[in-house]
Nucleic acid binder design. Sequence first.
DNA 1: TTGCCTATTGGTCGCACATCCAATAGCGTG
DNA 2: CACGCTATTGGATGTGCGACCAATAGGCAA
Lengths: 227, 227
Amino acid sequence: MSSSVQSKRVRKTPEARRAEIVDRAAAIALAEGLECITMRRVAEELDVRPGLISHYFPVAEDLVAEAFGSAASAELDELLPSARTPGQPLRYLARFFALTSGENYDGMSRLWLNARHLSRYREILRDRVGHQECLWRDRLTELIREGADAGTVRTDDPVAAAIQILVVLDGLSAHANTDRSDRPAVVSGMAVSTAERVLGLAVGSLAALATATPADRTTGHPTTDHN
Amino acid sequence: MSSSVQSKRVRKTPEARRAEIVDRAAAIALAEGLECITMRRVAEELDVRPGLISHYFPVAEDLVAEAFGSAASAELDELLPSARTPGQPLRYLARFFALTSGENYDGMSRLWLNARHLSRYREILRDRVGHQECLWRDRLTELIREGADAGTVRTDDPVAAAIQILVVLDGLSAHANTDRSDRPAVVSGMAVSTAERVLGLAVGSLAALATATPADRTTGHPTTDHN
DNA sequence: TTGCCTATTGGTCGCACATCCAATAGCGTG
DNA sequence: CACGCTATTGGATGTGCGACCAATAGGCAA
């Protein structure tokens, strides 16, 4: 329980304080949306005065963009780790879809929708979203290309495949907020089935890989066990 | 040019005034987003005092939901008219995709993204969005089913097909705000190619129909010309 | 024309926000 | 231990918002 009485003032290095602020703002964004990032709110949660936040981020929008970038980057490293045990692109792809379908991904999924919408009004955030978009696409493209080179994936345009997969994921994110179709199977299965089609994989092959290699957000990486 | 001096007070019937307010709010939503619908803003554009708006909409959120519903319904009737000249489901489908890809659709596309995001916080709006989602899906399903019955479309699940098409359209809307892929063809072609696949149509057939029957937002309906 | 009903006004309240700045006090340095 | 640098405070300013309500005046009916 955070006490509501303010503690004695604590002095930290600018770098540490700045990181602390961004982390807190990112947590708020994931839990309640980018609009909930306010100087007052972040200050309160850090048990600091609002003036301090605006000292580090004279323009509020910078903090919002920074928070989004931080959250998105962290999630990207979680979903599509840049350092991989080589030779298993399909396992990583399966893991990617398992994680993006899981309930743990809800927050990030909403955050992307949130950021995309807010991008219309806030230029700084728009640039950041565009940048993250490139990062995600490149990371996914790299994985697909590795699969294509190894022959486990069949596509003549890895970039296009990555884009199409991400677009469908965005569509699913958008729909998730208000879906009333009463056809959860149709909706939830779209990402994987689209991926299997785009990547020239057999129907159900990704799902099979996912169950064979349970997605573990703690250990993070696909196992290198038999088969 | 609207003069900034306020004119003499004009007394209208509640129905007329209410409709006027909703129309104005819907226009604001389409042009600048649902967040820009404020009592003060709508009042100013109607040359009326803010108190009047809150008289008709004691809770602001009701006006926002009403504005979205109004705009979405109008667009639905434009894109997927309920009264159709029978026997041409494919032409209407082609027209639908031509219109949703056009620049005129940008506003509505953003509005959906906007509404989906805001739905997370505002319950009243969420219900309205869910309702509109059903309307759109049902209207599209009906069209697909008509095609399936006529044999021009091949699908064993018209509802699933409609959902998948709408999900991809949502994904494209989301992406449109920040796309940096430098692969416009990949992105813009996704809706139609997904539709052709889901509906069991030959690649390019919808595009061919669209050019043969130019989408005219004025006359609105596919022509009944030869062929 | 008169009078009444009610649509409309104009003003107020409280709240939350970003932004700014002089004063303060934590803490490493000497 | 004393000092000075600067991270941090606290308070003020101005904006825009929804909500509320007694007073007003438009326009229809009698």
